[in-house]
């Protein structure tokens, strides 16, 4: 991603040599696109990668299905086979039944679905998407983004998506390269870029981003240290809390699975009555997964003052979030 003129579309076009790179290498499966001859390049363009364009770039004289089947037609695949594959791609993008429509009759969002179907029909390894959703209305754009994410979950292709919209980049990108003046200023995950910007340009760039949407529990949780075993006695638990200056402590079993939380005001009187941890621990704790964005954690915190436990799929405790962690993460934004 980058502002216009930063060279992102040029870089994308270098990947399939719509623009010839002046130096360097582009390796796909070990083959160097940058130096291969015309014949190999054609083969690579046919089989390895396909492209989706900002302006949709549908062929106006062709119906939807003939647009989608274009790449297959170029490969010399028989009409029957390419129509079958094209139909498949058309239903993938949710346009089933529109095959014989003229492209000019479709709305912008639908036209870009055709563009996407055309790129998917050849089943390439790499999808090059050049500001593919920039020409769409905000609502349709957001819908297309969600669908692309859902599609990608199934397809698991390499997608190079060029965007000038930071929100879009943060939403779609597993890894984001921020470009400036033809150079990559920083490359990394959304969290890496937000929490650790490489230079002033990047930090300025991401200054306006709503961190609570991007940063997740994983980014702000503290180590779950200490926790107390459910089989320990209350005095041990009280001792730990006193030593670490805590008003509550998570209770786990031998496998570090979360069992509950023990609060000091309940534990202290109970200890005198020689009760056990099981008797006084609370089990109504908030448990979340590491990928929950802060935006969703804040309301949980507001309802329940107890710390929140972050657990993995085996219910093993990974970290703890207290109110201070969230405030800390939000304060970081102000420092920028």
């Amino acid at each position: 991603m980058g502002l216009s003129g930063s060279g992102k579309s040029t870089l994308l076009r270098c990947l399939n040599r719509l623009i010839n790179p002046s130096e360097g290498h582009i390796l796909i499966d070990g083959d160097d696109i940058a130096t291969m001859d015309d014949k190999d390049l054609r083969e690579a363009r046919r089989k390895k990668m396909s492209m989706v364009f900002q302006s949709f770039a549908l062929l106006p004289h062709r119906t939807v299905i003939d647009n989608v089947a274009f790449g297959l037609e170029i490969q010399g695949i028989s009409k029957e086979e390419r129509y079958a594959k094209a139909e498949e791609a058309i239903s993938k993008v949710g346009l089933k039944g529109y095959g014989s429509s003229k492209t000019s009759q479709l709305s912008g969002g639908m036209q870009q679905r055709v563009g996407l179907a055309r790129a998917l029909a050849t089943d390439p390894d790499v999808l090059l998407m050049d500001e593919a959703f920039s020409a769409l209305d905000p609502l349709i754009r957001s819908e297309m983004q969600d669908e692309l994410i859902a599609l990608q979950d199934k397809l698991k292709k390499t997608i190079v998506f060029v965007s000038h919209d930071l929100d879009e980049a943060l939403k779609l990108g597993d890894r984001i390269a921020i470009m400036k003046d033809g150079m990559v200023a920083q490359i990394g995950t959304a969290e890496e870029i937000l929490t650790n910007p490489a230079d002033d340009y990047v930090s300025e760039f991401v200054a306006g981003v709503d961190r609570t949407k991007i940063l997740t529990a994983e980014n702000i949780m503290k180590r779950p240290d200490p926790v107390v075993s459910v089989n320990s006695g209350l005095p041990v638990a009280l001792q730990l809390m006193k030593k670490h200056g805590m008003s509550s402590i998570f209770v786990v079993d031998a496998d570090k699975k979360i069992k509950g939380i023990l609060c000091v005001d309940a534990a202290a009187p109970a200890a005198k009555e020689h009760k056990g941890i099981r008797d006084v621990m609370r089990t109504d704790i908030n448990i979340i997964t590491p990928d929950m964005p802060i935006k969703e954690i804040i309301p949980m915190m507001a309802e329940n003052a107890l710390p929140i436990a972050v657990i993995n799929e085996n219910e093993k405790i990974l970290g703890v979030i207290v109110r201070g962690s969230i405030l800390g993460a939000l304060a970081m934004k102000e420092e920028d």
């Binding site: 399939n16 363009r45 062929l59 170029i74």
Partner: peptide
């Protein structure tokens, strides 16, 4: 863009002309 579409999908010069 249409010229780019043709190239990006691996057309030969003749395919690009006629298709």
């Amino acid at each position: 863009e249409l010229d780019e579409v043709a190239s990006a999908f691996g057309t030969t010069p003749m395919q690009k002309l006629f298709k």
